[in-house]
Amino acid sequence: MMDQSPQMPPAQMPLALKLGMILTVLMAVMALISIVWTPYAVDQLNIQARLQPPFQAAHWLGTDHFGRDLLSMVMMGAQVSIAVAMVAVGIGMAVGVPLGLTAAALQGTRFDDVIMRGNDLAFAFPALVIAILITAILGPSAFNAIIAIGIFNIPVFARVARGGALTQWQLDYILAARVAGKSKTRISIEHILPNISTVLIVQGSIQFSLGILAEAGLSYVGLGAQPPIPSWGRMLAESQTMISFAPHLAIIPGVAIIITVLGLNLMGDGLRDWLDPKLTHRSRQNHRHMTERGEG
């Protein structure tokens, strides 16, 4: 008998999930549109129209000190931020999940020990510190930001995958698969991975939002995307000296970051509630805060 009955998510989506999805889709659509179209070219300077306030017919979100259209820059910034965070989550999952699954399959062995030791140590290196090290060697770029955030994501996914897999290894259906002669690798791929996909997806949305924050932080201090590629963080850095007479330059990119991160966080929380109703409130909170690490 299998002691794990398949659980269908409740028909009614939580409000947080709906709201999160609306905000996330909004930003994702904006980023996608920017690939083919922006109201103005982001490198199009128009000094005569510089520092226009928002809500103008020609420039909905106003212009910066070079007369560049802020809406176009925010749209392009969304593309950069989402791409960096998404690839970084991909790196974290691609390396971390196999490591975590292997560690769980070989629980108690030297390999498991080494992985867990490596994990503990990796938590002492916040993304910004990794970025500082990488930048000191290779120089600043969006690519290096991706690597830094990606490396930082690896131990998070390894830990979550290992934790989830260890629980699965205790269940009867895995025992049945072992009795049937399946190897640990096949069991990990065919049975464990699908059964921990929910927790991985939820963690993915959390790391995605942290990636957006980290990318913004790195760009702000000059360790992210370099000009002429627009990024929200660098838009904020450039606006800093003009904040007293053109606050919209700081407020608009900041609000874009907040909407994206809020959307992803609400989506992550909502997904967890919806897909895994077995989780108690406490374990949800602790799971989130124990596993999410490091901004900037």
């Binding site: 606006s239 900041g254 809020l262 966080n265 901004e295």
Partner: peptide, 22 residues
């Protein structure tokens, strides 16, 4: 708190400067 988690601290710092310093 949901909003507080989503706010980048360096952006919040800039807003604090705008309000309390400038």
């Amino acid at each position: 708190t949901q909003l507080g988690i989503a706010i980048p601290n360096f952006w919040f710092a800039m807003i604090l400067v705008l309000v309390f310093a400038i």
